[in-house]
């Protein structure tokens, strides 16, 4: 697996921080499309959509090829996989922390009961 640098991962997340860009990626995940198709659901000009696509392209999330008169866009999986890894990492991390918190609170109770017994 290719290891992306922290800077690249931050750039991926910066690109993902915008809801319109996430919408565009979702459309791309459902099949490659042209810029005009991508612009369809948005009340946005083609240049505005192109600006978002440029950010996605710079983050390595999208590739654009010119075919005839139109650009065709494709989703690139690498950076997204890193972002998903980030999500999976923290989901596991936080659940493990809460497991540990539960053990601690239970042990506190035992300790407390123990002390209570001696008094």
């Amino acid at each position: 697996m290719v290891k992306y640098s922290e800077q690249e991962l931050s750039r991926t997340f910066a690109a993902l921080s915008d809801p319109t860009r996430r919408g565009i990626l979702r459309q791309l995940a459902d099949g490659s499309t042209t810029v005009s198709e991508l612009a369809g659901p948005y009340s946005m000009s083609l240049p505005a959509v192109s600006k978002h696509l440029r950010v996605l392209e710079e983050a390595g999330l999208v590739s654009r090829d010119k075919q005839g008169r139109e650009y065709h866009c494709r989703l690139l999986a690498g950076p997204l996989r890193e972002a998903m890894e980030w999500i999976a990492f923290y989901r596991g991390f936080w659940n493990a922390r809460i497991d540990s918190l539960e053990d601690f609170l239970a042990s506190e109770e035992v300790e407390h009961d123990g002390k209570g017994g001696k008094q």
């Binding site: 997340f13 993902l16 996430r22 972002a83 998903m84 999500i87 989901r91 936080w94 659940n95 809460i98």
Partner: peptide
């Protein structure tokens, strides 16, 4: 999840 919002909620 990541396309909904880059966040983890537990």
């Amino acid at each position: 999840v990541v396309l909904a919002k880059p966040a983890v909620e537990v």
